[in-house]
C-alpha cells in the first residue's frame, strides 16, 4: 500500500510534505510517533481510550497535514498539540458530569453515570494528592502541566503544541508553579500511598 520511500533519514516535515502528493506515505509518521503519542494519551485517559485517541490523533493530523508548518522538522509538538485537543474533546464531553474527579480524589467511587469521566480516569491513575492538586487547575493549566511533566517537550515545543507564544507558556508556568505548590501543600508529601486500581 505505502509507496516505497526511504524514510529513515527523512525528517517529519519532509515526510508530511511528501504525503501531500502521496497520502499513504503519512503512515511513516504514524510508525515513528504512534507509540509516544499513545503513551501520553494513556497517561491522560487510560489505556483503552488511548488506543482510540491515538488513532484519532493521526487521522486529524493527516487531514490537517496541508497546514503543517514545515519549518519545523520535528512533528511531535504538532502531534502533541492535536493529542491535547482530542483529549480535551473527551473532557468536554464529560464536563457536565463534573465533580467526578474531586470525588475520586476524596476516595469515593463515582457513580456509574460518570464512569466515563476523563478527569476521573486521569485522577484514578495518580496519587490522590496529585489528583486533588489537578482539580485546582483549570483545563488549560492542566494541559500545560501534563504536557510539560509527561512528555519531553521543551517549553518552546509545548508552546507550539498549544499554539501560544513561548512567553505565554513561561508566564503560565510561573503561575502554575505557585498554584501547584499551594495545592500540594508540602506538609506531608508522602503521607498517602499511590492509589492503584
Amino acid at each position: 500500500m505505502v509507496a516505497v520511500h526511504e524514510v529513515s533519514d527523512t525528517d517529519d516535515s519532509t515526510l508530511i510534505g511528501r504525503s501531500l502528493d502521496d497520502p499513504e506515505s503519512f503512515a511513516a509518521l504514524f510508525d515513528r510517533h504512534a507509540d509516544e503519542i499513545h503513551r501520553y494519551a494513556a497517561r491522560r485517559l487510560g489505556p483503552e481510550t488511548a488506543e482510540d485517541v491515538t488513532g484519532e490523533v493521526f487521522l486529524v493530523a493527516f487531514r490537517r497535514r496541508a497546514r503543517y508548518d514545515r519549518t519545523w522538522p520535528d512533528a511531535r509538538p504538532w502531534l502533541y498539540g492535536i493529542a491535547t485537543k482530542v483529549v480535551a474533546q473527551h473532557r468536554r464531553t464529560e464536563r457536565r458530569r463534573n465533580h467526578a474527579m474531586a470525588r475520586m480524589a476524596g476516595a469515593e467511587r463515582p457513580g456509574s453515570f460518570d464512569e466515563r469521566s476523563v478527569e476521573r480516569v486521569t485522577a484514578e491513575q495518580l496519587q490522590p494528592r496529585l489528583a486533588r492538586a489537578l482539580t485546582r487547575l483549570n483545563a488549560a493549566e492542566r494541559d500545560l502541566l501534563l504536557l510539560v511533566a509527561w512528555t519531553d517537550l521543551t517549553y518552546e515545543e509545548a508552546a507550539i503544541a498549544l499554539g501560544v507564544p513561548v512567553g505565554t507558556v513561561r508566564s503560565r508556568l510561573h503561575r502554575l508553579r505557585v498554584k501547584v505548590r499551594r495545592a500540594l501543600g508540602g506538609n506531608h508529601p508522602f503521607a498517602e500511598e499511590p492509589q492503584d486500581g
Binding site: S19, F30, A34, E51, T54
Partner: peptide
Amino acid sequence: VPPYRPEARAQARERLLREAH
C-alpha cells in the same frame, strides 16, 4: 502505562491508510 497493543496499533494504522487511500 502498558505498551500500545500491536493489534490496536495495526488497526489504527490501517484506518489511517484507508483514509489516505
